[in-house]
Design a protein around this nucleic acid. Structure first.
Lengths: 325, 325
DNA sequence: TTGAAAGCGCTAACAA
DNA sequence: TTGTTAGCGCTTTCAA
């Protein structure tokens, strides 16, 4: 069923139907009514594909995320989606899995589908590729040169984590370091490290990936290699929870024997027992801000700035010792 | 840049380029090479929108989920996405939030975008609407009349939960019941209830929604109203974890004083302390099976059955007492 | 105020 | 083996 059927039903030309539907050009009130009635009667819904083809642009936005299965990203995606949905845009979603091939594949096919903009949280696509796509783009939780980006202040967050542990009397702090090619993970690590090196404490490092399972085995290793750690900064909440779990298994008291700080403040951290102290990022807001920025770009509105940086905050729960304040 | 540019570059007609790209009709080997070279040189990528318009179908699949923020669904979405991605399809995603208006909105706009099939996990759209869309559809984790559906055996799962608690000696069991309009939640509740009523135990019920925060307050209520519960069956893992958390806060020993069983086996349940015993659903496989079924439908392959039912299993962790076996 | 016609980029039928 | 043409459903000149 097409615009022609509606035109026929209303006794007008397709052009007129189009005008009514798009509120463009002059239409006599009576014709308008007739058209609307026909639309209703036939339950006509315009074909967005034809629209997209003619106009050269759609109501589609592409979103590439590392992995929707990692609890950080659904929250981010939701922020994006809610904003776009309200503005009448739909979301094309892909999981890049940190693999360049997949990331590029999605980026390319999104463009082939006439998406009108892209929000990308990718780790392996370079500036040249991204800017050669010639399409509005906003990096999310990632930074690539001077491309518009929305993110949280990892430097501040990383410093905060270290300061809080220092304030709480830790003397031997172990950093569980995530993959260094992931920009925010790298930054938060460096920031913590810098603060700790200024202080009079022992600092250990151990590597981990960001997944539940990976972190579990690294947590075991952590307690074997650095049994005297009295403070742990994990690269994210998942890793922190895995570490916490392992600490308890080994009979370490948290926070009495070991204090643990995570990163992100995903919803799990509140539900764990003892609940996890962590560096909060406004995840949902980041997503929705990215969507907002992207739509502004698309509509050629002025951006105050191409960057939007949220601050992090320390959420104290039960894996750190309260200090008087 | 269009197929005409490639044609020009290769010194042939657009039709020939199309033939090469689609491996259809006869093309001389030399021309084929010339075309491929031109494609490469210009880095040409066909416009999927134009294809979609001409063919009346796309490489797009629509997925409507209740809420990607609920940890059950990312896993499901990932199963769907991975399968589709491998087959060259892309995903249009929407969160229905259990609201009819949003669910319908997404369904409608997906069709307007020429999606070639839909996977739906919706609670408020009826059979007539769904079947009138005239598009291949697979219900996921939901059942609507005789529409193709992929789900886990909630009846079996619910029974299992009750049986396990009975085996482990519980005498007063409280069921935390989720929203009864969500089909699988309803079924698992009924199944547990049926088993318990056959047994010689006291049964309590308390209502909750499925969210982290909702469950927290209901957990408090649970322990006030039914302080003697020695067994709890929660409607899902999130609710179970919230309940567990609250039990520990109140100094109840788990599983010594209270045993708790969740539902779903989302990844969180393994990371909680003590880790959560739960009814496992093969979430990822459900997603990928739904995608498989949908593509079969789309390609008019015979379906052995329009329904695909997975079984559930009991995953025993630390919130139930081990029994000798 | 309305309609006819062209064209977005592609593919398929038909002709050459 | 290849090219010409029409048309998918829509919007937008342009003419009436």
């Amino acid at each position: 069923m097409s615009i022609r059927d509606v035109a026929k039903e209303a006794g007008v030309s397709p052009a007129t139907v189009s005008r009514v539907l798009n509120n463009s050009g002059y239409v006599h009130e009576d014709t308008r009514k007739a058209v609307l009635q026909a639309v209703k009667k036939l339950n006509y819904k315009p074909n967005e594909v034809a629209r997209s083809l003619y106009k050269g642009k759609s109501k589609l936005i592409g979103l590439v995320l590392p992995d929707i299965t990692n609890p950080f990203f659904p929250e981010l995606a939701r922020g994006v989606e809610d904003y776009l949905q309200k503005k009448g845009y739909r979301l094309l979603l892909g999981n890049g899995d940190g693999k360049q091939q997949k990331e590029i594949d999605y980026l390319d096919t999104f463009v082939q589908h006439n998406v009108v903009g892209i929000i990308a949280s990718v780790d392996n696509v370079d500036y040249d590729f991204l800017s050669n796509m010639n399409i509005p783009i906003v990096m999310l939780d990632r930074i690539v040169k001077d491309l518009p980006a929305v993110y949280s202040d990892q430097f501040q967050g990383g410093s905060l984590a270290a300061e809080k542990l220092l304030e709480r009397g830790c003397k031997e702090i172990t950093l569980v370091r995530g993959p260094m090619n992931i920009h925010p993970v790298y930054e938060r690590f460096q920031a913590s490290l810098a603060v700790l090196q200024e202080a009079n404490v022992k600092v250990n490092k151990i590597d981990s990936n960001l997944s539940f399972n990976g972190a579990k085995s690294r947590a075991k290793e952590l307690f074997e290699k650095y049994p005297d750690s009295d403070g742990i900064i994990a690269c994210n909440d998942i890793v922190a929870v895995a570490t916490l779990h392992e600490a308890l298994r080994r009979g370490r008291k948290v926070p009495e024997d070991v204090q643990i700080i995570g990163f992100d403040d995903i919803s799990i951290s509140e539900l764990v027992y003892p609940s996890l102290s962590t560096i909060h990022q406004p995840i949902y807001q980041m997503g929705s801000k990215a969507a907002e920025l992207l739509l502004k770009e698309i509509h050629n509105e002025k951006l105050d700035s191409k960057r939007y940086k949220f601050s992090c905050s320390f959420v104290e729960r039960e894996t750190t010792k309260k200090v008087g304040d």
